[in-house]
Design a protein around this nucleic acid. Structure first.
Lengths: 83, 83
DNA sequence: CGTGTAAGGAATTCTGACACG
DNA sequence: CGTGTAAGGAATTCTGACACG
């Protein structure tokens, strides 16, 4: 598992599809990005593109928010993991 | 490998993205569908949704067409495989 | 047969903002 | 703080058709 054609990490899914897959509103998804919790790609026209990994992350973020965790704390957690 | 969350087979990619990934025109991609060579899903609004598997199939189809194979023949081949 | 294109409409996405709290 | 919504614009996708061959 190094560099390759990992379908799971390819950013190719548009926000509308992500909404269907996660049950989250586009507003929420964009807000989590604004808060630095995920980093979708962009099409040439500026449209967001997500990967299946992003979708999994979104589900996790939604769960944590339901538990009362602040976006700020979720972000700190993320930093810890990526070290 | 039975029923599960196979990212590779999830139909979530819109045609514009497929064009970028394959280098094929939307016209070609829709035509191959019309000829029965692949079966994308559809969003609620009627927009085509492709999987990574569909994209791989498209690359293969494009190669065969370049070699002079007719869509009709490619379709027959497909039938043979799916038996 | 395989593919380009102009045509018109419908649906999507984008951003910045006001709202509530 | 997290999220809904109306606002206006820009880009996407869809279908059926004419074109060439």
């Amino acid at each position: 598992m190094a560099m390759s054609e990992k379908f799971k990490d390819k950013k190719v899914i548009m926000i509308g599809t992500v909404c269907e897959l996660t049950g989250l509103s586009a507003r929420k998804i964009r807000y989590y990005e604004e808060r630095g919790l995920l980093f979708p790609g962009r099409s040439s026209a500026g449209n967001r593109k997500y990967s299946f990994s992003d979708i999994e992350a979104l589900m996790e973020i939604a769960n944590q928010l339901e538990d009362g965790t602040k976006t700020n704390e979720i972000k700190k957690e993320l930093k810890r993991k990526n070290m």
